[in-house]
Structure formats: C-alpha cells, structure tokens
Amino acid sequence: METLLATFVSGLVLAALYALMASGLSLIWTTIGVFNFAHGALMMVGAFVAWTVSEVGGFGLWPGLIAGVATTTVLGVIIEYLLIRPFYGQRNMVLITVMTTLAAMIILEKSAQIIWGARLKQLPRMIEGDISISGAVISAHEALIVVLAPLILIALWQFTNRTPVGRSLRAVGQNQEAAALLGINVPLTFALAFGLGAALAGLTGVLLGGIRFITPSLGSEPLIKAMIVVIFGGLGSLGATVGAALVIGMAEAFLVLTLGLYWTPFAIFLGLIAVLVLRPNGLFGRS
C-alpha cells in the first residue's frame, strides 16, 4: 500500500511537471500552428539564467526566477520574429518551422555550452526539507511543483478564456483571417503567444533546476515528454494537455514500478501509437 501511494505521489509530481512543460508548447501550437522544437532549450536557458542570478550574482532564487522567465520571454519573441514570422502564410510553414526551431534549439544549446560550460549546476530548492504523505516521502520542492502547476495552469486558463487578450489568442488560433477582420493584430498576437509559451518554458526550467542538474541538454528529454503529452492529448485545448499530462505522468510512475525504468519509455511510446491508431486526433482531441 505504501509503495502504491509513493508511486501515486511520484506520478503526481511527473504529471505536474509534464503539464507545465507541455502547456507552453500547446499554447504556441494552438495559436500559431508551429511546433516549437526550441521549447526544451528555452527551459534550459531559464534554469541557467536563474542559476547565474541567484548563485553567481548572489541575488537569491526569486530574482533568479524572475530573470530566467524574463530572459526566455524575450528569447521567445526574438525566435518568433526572426525564425517564424518570415514564413507565415507559406504552404509548407510547418515543415520550415520544424527546421528553424530546431536550429534555434541547437544555437541555444551550443551558446549555453560556451557561456556556462559543461559542468553540472543546480539551483537551490525553493523550499528545503521533505514531506511525508502516509509514508510516501517527496521533497518540499516537488510538493511545491505539485501545488504550483495547477495554480499556474488555472491562471493560464483564466487568461485565455476570461480576458480579451486571451480570447484574441484563441480567435487567432482558430481563424487567423477572420480574426484580422475583427481588428486583431495577428502578428502581434503570434509574438505574444510565443513569448508566453517561452515564459512557461523558462518557469518550468527554473523549477526543474531544483531537482535535476542543469546542463545544456537539460531540456532535451522534457521536450520529448512535452511533445508526447501535447500529441497524446490531442493538439488542442489546455484541458486536453493537462489531462494527457496526468495520464502520462501516472502511467510512467506505475510502469516504472511494474516494468522497470528500462522498458517504460518503450511502453509509453507503444501506448501513444495505440491511442493515435484508435483516436488519430489524440485522447481528448476533436475530429
């Protein structure tokens, strides 16, 4: 029973992380129709900048968090302006932007290697200590992620559904041409979506930096996980992404328990393919 509970809690932590990782990616996809392969690299930059400000600069974790998120937001807007915007309206835009965002990923990773070197770094935890839930022990930092993730996602949902700017993001994502007719500045909306998605990546990177070592490749595995979550959920709403994150996080935790670490990725990909065969629009996607 204790093992099951520990696995459940571990699944919750994974689900929270995956939901955060995937939400920015999903926001960019639903608004612009671009899969941002630099999303993981932006997480890494966020973590490195936060580490530099808090550890090297000695300003503490919270200024580091703000600096990390601000940097990735600006980088996101720059990536959109330089590597996405020139290709809007082109028939093969999705393919072109796969290449340009991959290029951004490589540039960011190599730049990080030059700036910060290959030595492992780690951010201090936001809250020190451990928390025991009926015998299942997780760090207070991980518990904070489990609490923060839903709050951030609720705030994001409120923003996209309850504010005019958020609704303009949805309108542009659903019908760009008609949105322009409503007076919405479509290119500005694209930049906003990319900046917001990158900010979420930066925030996730800072949270990750407290539980994983920060290296230039910190974002590589989270990027793949975020993509699985977004595709599995159905390339659609935030709710679908959160639902998929919960399913995959839990599945991963219980698969590690039953099949072991080695076979878990294989089983997850098999599950993803099976879902896509049965439901080509993803688990929660609409046809």
């Binding site: 609704r167 303009s168 309108a171 019908n175 008609a178 949105a179 007719l181 409503l182 007076g183 709403s237």
Partner: peptide
C-alpha cells in the same frame, strides 16, 4: 464578411462580437 462561415470553434457568439468591439 467571408463567403464561408468565419467561425471560431471555441468562442461563443457573444465573445466573438465582443472581441470585434474591443479590438476593432
């Protein structure tokens, strides 16, 4: 207006018009 319906699958009728009032 467009020949085809300019619909937004996730927006309500009121939200659509309100967006035009705010941005336009």
């Amino acid at each position: 207006t467009f020949q085809k319906d300019a619909e937004y699958p996730d927006l309500t009728a009121k939200e659509t018009i309100a967006l035009a009032a705010i941005y336009g």
